[in-house]
Amino acid sequence: MANRVWAYVDQFKSQALLASWEVVFTGRKLADQLGSGLTVLVIGSHLDALAKAAIEYGADEVLLVDDPSLEDYRASPYAAALAGAVGENKLDIFLFPTTTRGREVAGMAAIDLNTGVLVDVTEIKLDGDKVTAIRPVYAGKLLSEVVCNAKPQLVTLRGRAFEKPVPDAGRTGTVTKLPTVMAEDEIKLKVTGYQAAEGGVSLTDASVIVSGGRGTSNNSAEPPAEITDESEKEIWKAQQGFILINDLASVLDGAVGASRAAVDAGYVPYVHQVGQTGKVVSPDLYIACGISGAIQHLAGMRSSKVIVAINKDPEAPIFKYARFGVVGDLYKILPPLTAAMKERLEK
């Protein structure tokens, strides 16, 4: 009998994103509660190592759609492969990671399987086979309870919101290869290349984030004489602060974040933006430097476990959310803080 709980593994170049194993591990728990097995679906190319890992993280059955035409992620053939794998199987719950690809594939699956999708949930409760999930809305300013009144109930899980997956090398399971569904000439999209992200840890995966705001431009150092434009001067000044922020982030194996004000002023690129129109993050440690704490920024980071704020203005709203605050100049505090952390972490 087919399993009633399924999980989808998102991979890139045959490597699973960590959020995928959180999904498999959570799927295992839900399957146990329902007295069902867990089926894990992986779509891509060269997937044998992933199949083995999926079993270690909790799969009883692994379905692989493994074909050279699926090497690069493309929405249509992936969605078609997923719909083909589900076929006539009657499942209750299908979990996905909320990655860029996971979100997209799940959305398309909702159309193909004539159901709905609960996106980016942070909590799941089971009542019989019925899922009630909690998801942040308005970038976490509010929480919404959501249910899907059709089956399968498609759910994408927010990364780092569920239990940390632990592999068990002793587990066993079956691996079945399924045929690919779309022929290359039916696919109206080609992948022509990749440009790797600039170095550094990505914000969504980071367990530590060091962020900078407008306050980084509050720098007494003078820019080199060849910079004459006022806004270029300001950017230069702020970027010296982001160098210090990057130094601390490197020592902590963390990512560099920024407020919208810092991004809009051109200090750092948009990939670093935390907040309602940037990334919503929830690291274990968030160090805000020269960030006053606008409501849009707070919405994007307030669920961080420990918040540290360094700001010259004692009235800055960020201090209300901070476990530890330093009222002071980030240019004076950051270098000794980086040195002190380096010493304590024995780096």
Partner: peptide, 27 residues
């Protein structure tokens, strides 16, 4: 509609103990 949202709520208030770190110099 397949997905419904029976409840919307404010996120739980976070109990944060604020502690301001002070000292005579940045070090």
């Amino acid at each position: 509609a397949v997905v419904t949202w029976p409840n919307v709520m404010a996120p739980p208030e976070r109990e944060v103990t604020n502690e301001i770190i002070e000292g005579s110099n940045p070090e």
